[in-house]
């Protein structure tokens, strides 16, 4: 198990991460959610031993990783947010290089590289220079390079940014397979809720350098409870309703759709208040549907910001 205990990271006057506590068990997939500037990348960099914690520590099986950094690094794989590849080398040469510096035996690296190239769908491109690759192909290779030494824990920092839907699906399936079939533990950060929901068993929600919620998907969604989000299909008076709801203090968020408004509240139950506004103001509606809470809703509820803000 890898743990982060009361970890903080300060840059001069700014605290990028404040007293972070979280853990990743062997073989589990954990999501780290947060908008830009939440401190996710700093947290991953500390976990990856790229930067040191200002206070607090990162431990593996209860031992501070700094005590045997070499051993720790051999057990982790890091997929950085940016493409960290040698553009002038071919896909195969990149993989070979990372296998060599991890001291993977020739025989093993040959097999692993062949399998990884197949897994990320780059068989036809393996002899081509990375600089000729599309963004999606580079992302896939970026992931493969982190797996070449078969790490026990993989930290993925928004690995699907700028990836086409096909490559994205490919990457997600691969990560799911690695976690489920090979028992690789995954720490996954993303802006995309559906990715996190697909891959992760457990989540940490971060904002402004702190963990503000944690638990499994259902536990997180329960934070909002039921009946807090409604979809109102308006026949007449959509703009008027929108304006009226904007004045209601308990309404947390309003999103206009083609034929109505999605209303999210931080007070339960919302339904009665909503119906009161509609009937009092003679708004003609086709229907009011209770909407199941999503992680996005939870995030909005907790931070007042959208994930992709």
């Amino acid at each position: 198990m890898i743990e982060m205990i009361e970890a903080t990271k300060s840059y001069k006057q700014t605290k990028a991460v404040k007293g972070l506590n979280f853990h990743i068990e062997k073989g589990e997939a954990v999501g780290l959610l947060g908008p830009n500037g939440a401190g996710k990348t700093t947290a991953i960099s500390m976990l990856a031993s790229l930067i040191q914690t200002t206070t607090g520590q990162v431990c593996i099986n209860g031992v501070d990783v700094r005590k045997n950094l070499k051993k720790y690094r051999a057990r982790i794989g890091v997929v950085p947010q940016d493409i960290a590849l040698f553009p002038e080398l071919t896909a195969e040469e990149n993989l070979n290089f990372f296998a060599k510096i991890h001291k993977v035996s020739k025989q093993e690296s040959k097999q692993t590289i062949a399998r990884l190239i197949q897994d990320v769908g780059l068989e036809e491109k393996k002899k081509e220079k990375v600089e000729t690759f599309s963004g999606g192909m580079k992302r896939r290779l970026n992931l493969a390079c982190a797996l070449v030494h078969r790490p026990e824990y993989v930290f993925l920092d928004e690995p699907t940014v700028g990836v086409d839907p096909q490559s994205r699906r490919h990457l997600l399936d691969l990560m799911k397979t690695l976690q489920q079939e090979q028992g690789m533990a995954i720490l996954y950060t993303s802006h995309y809720m559906e990715e996190v929901e697909f891959i992760c068993d457990r989540l940490y929600v971060m904002d402004r350098g702190e963990v503000i919620a944690s638990g499994n998907k259902e536990e997180i969604k329960q934070i909002l409870g039921s009946g807090s989000t409604y979809e109102v299909h308006v026949q007449e008076g959509k703009e008027k309703l929108y304006e009226l709801l904007q004045q209601e203090k308990q309404i947390k968020n309003l999103v206009k759709t083609d034929d109505g408004i999605i209303v999210t509240s931080n007070r339960n139950p919302l339904f009665q208040d909503l119906m009161h506004v509609i009937t009092e103001n003679h708004i003609r509606v086709n229907g009011v549907l209770a909407k199941e809470s999503t992680l996005e809703d939870v995030f909005l509820h907790l931070t007042g910001r959208k994930l992709r803000d």
């Binding site: 990856a48 031993s49 790229l50 070499k70 690094r73 051999a74 982790i76 890091v78 950085p80 940016d82 493409i83 960290a84 590849l85 040698f86 553009p87 990372f98 510096i101 991890h102 001291k103 390079c145 030494h149």
Partner: peptide
């Protein structure tokens, strides 16, 4: 391009 960081994480 962060390959240096990647090398450091790879025990270089």
């Amino acid at each position: 391009n962060l390959t240096l960081d990647r090398m450091v994480v790879s025990n270089v």
